[in-house]
Design a protein around this nucleic acid. Structure first.
Lengths: 137, 137
DNA sequence: CCGCATCCAATTCGATACTG
DNA sequence: CAGTATCGAATTGGATGCGG
């Protein structure tokens, strides 16, 4: 019998996770998914709601999410034209795991902040030390 | 009373998640965390186990994870030198939410694949259609 | 209103060479 | 063994202008 206590994830599995993270790990995807998790929105509405996103990146990110079946794009050919974006069931199913990550982030961020500052302080400190250090080889 | 059924995540919260994702959402972090979740490892051992990672990126990624307090670096000044990397408790606490995401990835990846192919086929299809389309303005 | 195309700056990353 | 340093290629992202 093999040890089944610790879950071993072969590289092949991790690569799939990596791929998912590559999709949602960019600067805007999570923001958009979160917003669309509340309600479907139009392009510029979404743009105003996210703040800081350029038109280009909004378009690109939405295309990517649409391509992976996470969001749905509905065009209404009126004048002016109207385009609505909404989460698909697949996209909605992603909300749960993302929520877990959100909780982790909110809970542990202060700790990360501290670790970061300590690390930076330590690095800066090491810079001060003289290069020659040890007598006796 | 406000509607408390749907969880609203203000942008400020999402930005924190985004920050976490920026840390673990790169090409190698998850792979490394997964490997170190099994057992602590030395630099080149880690390098061989991950496959495809360059020395440069391994160093950079490990530094980043160390800076955020997710992994611990232990130097043994022997000849040849020995450096071990291991998850910190904080890093280990990240294993659970990542596991959720892993499950999602493994479960829904086929669906994503299909969506992707359909999308690409559809886009290629639209390219074929004539540009002039509607009479009557 | 929605979004694509182009140009350009900044960042990222692999390859390579060198150090303690 | 475990890195650092440097360089060029590739990717990314903002700004701007045009088109349906």
């Amino acid at each position: 019998m093999l040890d089944t206590k610790t879950v071993h994830h072969p590289t092949s599995e991790c690569l799939k996770v990596t791929e998912v993270l590559a999709r949602i790990g960019d600067k805007w995807s999570i923001l958009l998914i979160a917003r669309l998790g509340e309600r479907s929105m139009r392009f510029n509405e979404l743009r105003r709601s996210v703040e800081g996103v350029s038109q280009r990146m909004l378009t690109l990110t939405l295309r990517g999410l649409e391509r992976d079946g996470l969001i749905m794009r509905t065009v209404t050919s009126s004048i002016p034209p109207r385009v609505d974006y909404a989460l698909t069931p697949l996209g909605r199913s992603l909300l749960a795991p993302v929520e877990e990550l959100t909780k982790w982030a909110l809970e542990h961020r202060p700790t990360v902040e501290i670790a970061r500052r300590e690390f930076d302080a330590k690095v800066a400190d090491d810079m001060d030390e003289p290069v020659i250090s040890l007598r006796r080889g």
